[in-house]
């Protein structure tokens, strides 16, 4: 033993790559933040930073569960539709019954159900996640339009939207909720067997199965959580907008996946870090915000977002090669 160990004495990894691994994306965010504070007018103000945080709250919540989905080697395209549908359904039920709890329960329940069905189709029946969630994305979007007849459903219960626009210690409630999601799912990822099993499944499904990991069950749980959290985000969004809007959040799924990829989550599964995902979400929001302040036309913003995503992935590959 001793001779083996001494001969392969660690020629320790370079400090740069260590640092990059643990905090690379947070560092990028910090640099961008400082840069924007200096060069972009009106960026560093309480009102703007509040707006920024609010603007990423939806993506942030959903990124938590998307991270699990990707970590386990799947992904979910239906989240944008679930956000819209949950808002519409919640608003409709609240208006019909005058009961907030009932509306919330209906929205969360339907979101969880969509996720559960996705999970069963992917994990149990064995249909590819792309196809399954592409289908449910369209079905759920359609259901949202049907339920609302294509129009926004105004919420008449003011206690509900008062909550969506409230704040605690100067920080908007939706932002607190997002922070809560990050905390919960961060703990789930790092400190529990559930998180480790999800990563093992993403790394090698067959090996995990043979090692006694309940692969099907974990995947179904992940998809169900994904639906639940998307519906929750949809409710919060509806509360902010004081209405359930059937056409909101189109393309949100891609923004969420982009944020996760920016946060170093591997699309082939098995690798995920919550801190980096937080940074990915923040970078997305910051860039968007800065572009708005700089009056860059929306058409160009699409191009810029795509380039940033590519840039981040290239940076990551470059680092791995070095």
């Amino acid at each position: 033993m001793s001779s083996n160990a001494s001969a392969s004495a660690p020629a320790s990894a370079s400090p740069f790559s260590r640092l990059w691994d643990s905090a690379g994306m947070l560092l990028v965010f910090a640099l961008l933040f400082v840069g924007c504070s200096i060069f972009v007018e009106n960026f560093f103000s309480v009102a703007n930073l509040r707006g920024l945080a609010l603007s990423v709250s939806t993506i942030g919540m959903i990124a938590c569960t998307m991270m699990f989905c990707l970590a386990a080697g799947d992904f979910d395209l239906s989240v944008g539709s679930v956000v819209a549908f949950a808002g519409v359904l919640g608003a409709t039920v609240m208006n019909a019954t005058g009961n907030v709890a009932l509306g919330v329960a209906a929205a969360l329940g339907s979101g969880a159900l969509v996720g559960f069905v996705n999970g069963v189709l992917v994990a149990r029946v064995g249909i590819n996640a792309l196809i399954t969630t592409l289908a449910s994305m369209q079905i759920v979007r359609g259901l949202g339009f049907i339920a609302s007849d294509g129009r926004a459903v105004g919420i008449r219960t003011d206690s509900f939207f008062a909550f969506g626009n409230s704040a605690l210690l100067g920080v908007p409630t939706p932002v607190w909720l997002t922070i809560g999601c990050f905390a919960i799912f961060g703990v789930l990822l790092n400190l529990t067997i559930f998180g480790r099993n999800a990563l093992a499944i993403g790394g090698n499904k067959e090996a995990a199965h043979l090692a006694g990991v309940p692969v099907t069950r974990i995947k179904v749980v992940i998809f169900t959580l994904q639906g639940l959290v998307a519906a929750f985000a949809g409710l919060v969004l509806a509360a902010r907008m004081t209405s359930g809007q059937p056409n909101t959040s189109q393309g949100l799924e891609l923004e969420v996946i982009s944020a996760c990829v920016l946060g170093g989550v591997s699309l082939s599964g098995g690798v995920a870090r919550i801190g980096a995902v937080v940074a990915g979400v923040l970078i997305m929001g910051l860039v968007q915000n800065a572009m708005n302040l700089l009056n860059i036309p929306p058409f160009y913003q699409y191009v810029a977002r795509g380039l940033i995503l590519l840039g981040a992935v290239m940076l990551d590959r470059f680092k791995r090669r070095a």
Partner: peptide
């Protein structure tokens, strides 16, 4: 069927 290649040795042992 054995290793989860992109996870650590410890992870693989404790899986």
């Amino acid at each position: 069927e054995g290793i989860v290649a992109i996870r650590s040795v410890a992870e693989n042992i404790n899986l």
